[in-house]
Design a protein around this nucleic acid. Sequence first.
DNA 1: GATTTCGCTTGCAATTTGCAATTGATATGG
DNA 2: CCATATCAATTGCAAATTGCAAGCGAAATC
Lengths: 176, 176
Amino acid sequence: MASLSGVPGKPKSKPRSRCPVSISLEIFGDRWSLLIIRDLMVRGFRTFREFRGSGEGISTNILADRLRRLEARGIITREAEARDRRKLNYRLTEKGIDLAPVLLELLLWGARREETGAPCAWIEDMAKHREAVLAEVRRRWQERDATPLLPRFAGGRLGRPTQHGYRATDVQLKAS
Amino acid sequence: MASLSGVPGKPKSKPRSRCPVSISLEIFGDRWSLLIIRDLMVRGFRTFREFRGSGEGISTNILADRLRRLEARGIITREAEARDRRKLNYRLTEKGIDLAPVLLELLLWGARREETGAPCAWIEDMAKHREAVLAEVRRRWQERDATPLLPRFAGGRLGRPTQHGYRATDVQLKAS
DNA sequence: GATTTCGCTTGCAATTTGCAATTGATATGG
DNA sequence: CCATATCAATTGCAAATTGCAAGCGAAATC
């Protein structure tokens, strides 16, 4: 059943599982990859420099490596700016934006089950309007809208969270 | 904003992000943890030995380490069998079963976007009946039902997949 | 031309993972 | 009771990956 063809990037033989979860984790089963996707998808980040500043302290060699891997897997693309060819803009592909439900569920689980900076009202609102959130993520991607998903998604309806004294910056979803 | 209190388990200072995605990845941001959760949740596995046989070739030291971490985070519990105290049974907690949507979305993404052993019809059926799948996962957890989710969830409706020549074993969702 | 900026790359140390043998506790069989 | 088997680890060591911080090369600016 499990062949010994090995896992990509692993010189040592390891059974190559055909389970979808396992195959997904071959791509994202590390600390950093989904954080990069979060930054692209939720915060509207595009550049190496922005990812570097996202708040978790990723090292440049790891960031460069992860960007390369994601690109190799067809999840992101990159393009130099016409006006300054040093500046590379990364963008999720369709395959990449299809990860929105994964990201959303991770966000919801983390917010509900761990101590985070996400205001509870926002979280339950997003859960309640799950399809609308996913549609908004896709719309922003299609329109290359680089503004952050939150608190914009809240449509200002929730306004500035005050019930827990949280500020928008605590959610780590702020624009560059 | 980001304090230098450090990330748990990391002696080196690293900004501690309050973003829910980041905090989730502090727990699951590795190759193995979500595979263990998959085995508990989907395949009905309970024992060290079963996890060892799940098909991805996890090493015993890594398995032991990941089980310990998941237990420390309140995601799983363990209990020795009364009749044979060497045998430990692991079980998801409520907090753990709340990861079902994450697992399901990972499974769906992987199945749709990568080459896997999951029959397409199963996948689209699960996606279509998302709430029912999640309810079934929770029911089985509550009733300590250790039978695998698939192909049972398909209710035998799809029967033995033949359209792609796949066998149930290719889905890696087989009982021990 | 000198300096700055951008996205890396590099050298080295620290940490984690992987392999395979071993261990300690528990159970079984003669 | 002792020898053997089973279970869930633990261990010693090698290989791989991550992390730190300096440095590099290309492009842009002054």
